[in-house]
Structure formats: C-alpha cells, structure tokens
Design a protein around this nucleic acid. Structure first.
Length: 275
DNA sequence: CTGGATGTTCGACA
DNA sequence: ATGTCGAACATCCA
C-alpha cells in the first residue's frame, strides 16, 4: 500500500490521536510481524508504560517516539493504524493492539500480514536494521544531483529498479516511480548508467515535485489505502499513467500501456517516454 | 476453479 | 559483488 505520501499522511493524521498517551498493554495476534526484539514477550515488556511523544517518518517507515525507544513500523502492502474505544468490536486482520491510558486502543490491521515492527534504542535508531541502509528522503538536502548521479553511474540496472531501491532514495514505490518517470519523459527500461545529466536532473526534480504534490493531496487511494482517520487520499485524480492503461495520455493523446519491469506492473506513455 | 495481480522488501541463487 | 526472482499472505478479478 503506502509509499512516502501515504505514510506521511498517516503520520500526520494519527499524531493527534496518540501523542501524550501511554501504552498500558500490548496484544500480538500474529507474532511474525514483530522483528525486534525477536521474542514477542520482550517486545510487549519494552513498550509497557511507554508514553508516545511524537510520530516521525523516514522513507516509508513510521517512527513512534517513546520515552526510551522508537517503535519503528513498516506497513508494507496493506498495513493500517487506527484508534478506537476499547469497547468497539475488533475487525478481522487486526494483529497488534496497543491499549492506551485513555481507554482507547491503537490498532494495527494488515490483511496480508507483511508489515514489520522493531523496537530500537533511541541512540542507535539509524545504526541498525531496518533503517541503517536507507538512502535520503527525496526532500532531504543530501538528495543532491551529485549524490543521485553517483549512485546511478555505479549500477547496471534499469532506472525503474534504481528508483525503487530504498538505499538510493527512500520513499518512492511503484505508483510514484511510474508517475515520476512519465513527468521526466524517461522510459522505465532505460539503463540508469546511460541517462544524460539533463535526464537525471529531471527525474530528481519530478520525484520531489510528485511526492510533494501527493502529500498535499493526502496520498493515493487505489483500492484500500486510508489515513489515520480512515479517510481516502485524493492524488489518484492526478495520476498520469499509473492505473491509466488503455486511456489517452493527457499530454500527447497516445494510449497508455502497461508492461512488466523487474516483475512490477509498469505504466508508460509510448509517446512521452521513448526507450 | 485456477492463475495472475496487488501500493513491499528480503533472502536465496546465478 | 550485483542483479534477478520467488516468497511472505489474503483477496479480487478474468
């Protein structure tokens, strides 16, 4: 499900429901979601009595700032958070419940059970898994043209694979990579190390612009994404190529096609993106 | 009914 | 060392 704009929207909307509240109890119904500590009982014990002070984000990860730790949560394809009164019925696919001091529950729901949670010491947040090898966010000052060009030169992969690589730049996923490459006028199958300086600059610029715009629209809802208050995103109205196959390109009128690139469904305008 | 696809990532292989 | 591919899992659609 969520890429950077969706995670950012969840972060923002969820904050007002949980900040200042204390975790009094934790229930885990699908232990494989808990990656650190490896023992689920230890996970519960660490969180017991911890107050949630803030929610931050790095790439597609949510970072719950607690008294002594960060709870690092990745939503993968379908993960969702929501806050409910304890008495409210627990829906299917709810796998982790954090009971809060207010009598409410922060619930983690994940149809496909791919999501992950790590509890990390605050001072080594970025020193160990899962955050240690992440590249900069597109909005970070470190994501310069020089940095991006260096990364691109050293690889033999197609540009779409490079943009999906979170160690290069953190936060882009399948939707926003396709949208970025369309706006930059670059074909997803183009070899990264054959890109011109101008193309590299355009990709960087359009990645930043696309994500900013999508954050403004509260993310993209294709079928299941909702934010921390259960609301859908609006960016799907602005999609140029993703999920637009067999429709006319808004720019040139040619028919948008769908193909496979590195195993991922990939949307291309054959007029605007030449290989 | 069966196979393929879904917004992600990682570990197993070549 | 790098790059590709399937698996983790549930659901929906052709």
């Amino acid at each position: 499900m969520p890429e950077l704009p969706e995670v950012e929207t969840i972060r923002h909307t969820l904050k007002r429901f949980v900040v200042g509240k204390t975790i009094e109890n934790v229930q885990v119904f699908w232990p494989k979601i808990i990656k650190q500590p490896d023992d689920v009982e230890a996970f519960k014990l660490l969180l017991h009595g911890q107050t949630i002070h803030d929610i931050k984000r790095k790439g597609k990860f949510l970072l719950f700032e607690l008294d002594d730790y960060y709870l690092v949560s990745h939503l993968r394809m379908e993960g969702k958070y929501s806050v409910h009164p304890k008495v409210e019925a627990i829906p299917k696919h709810t796998h982790v419940i954090f009971a809060l001091s207010t009598g409410e529950e922060l619930r983690y729901n994940d149809v496909r059970k791919f999501g992950t949670m790590h509890v990390l010491e605050k001072n080594q947040l970025f020193q160990e898994k899962p955050l240690n090898h992440l590249g900069p966010d597109p909005f970070d000052p470190e994501f310069t043209i020089d940095y991006f060009s260096e990364k691109i030169k050293r690889t033999n992969r197609v540009i779409k694979a490079v943009l999906l690589d979170q160690t290069v730049v953190a936060g882009l996923g399948n939707i926003y990579v396709d949208e970025t490459l369309f706006k930059a006028g670059v074909h997803p199958l183009k070899n990264a190390n054959k890109l011109t300086k101008a193309e590299i600059a355009a990709i960087r610029k359009q990645a930043i612009a696309t994500l900013k715009d999508a954050v403004k629209q509260g993310g993209t809802t294709i079928r299941s994404y909702v934010n921390g208050q259960g609301e859908m995103g609006m960016f799907q109205q602005e999609l140029n190529v993703y999920a637009q196959e067999n429709t006319a390109c808004k720019n040139c009128g040619r028919t948008i096609i769908k193909m496979k690139v590195g195993g991922r469904g990939t949307h291309v305008c054959p007029g605007c993106q030449k290989q």
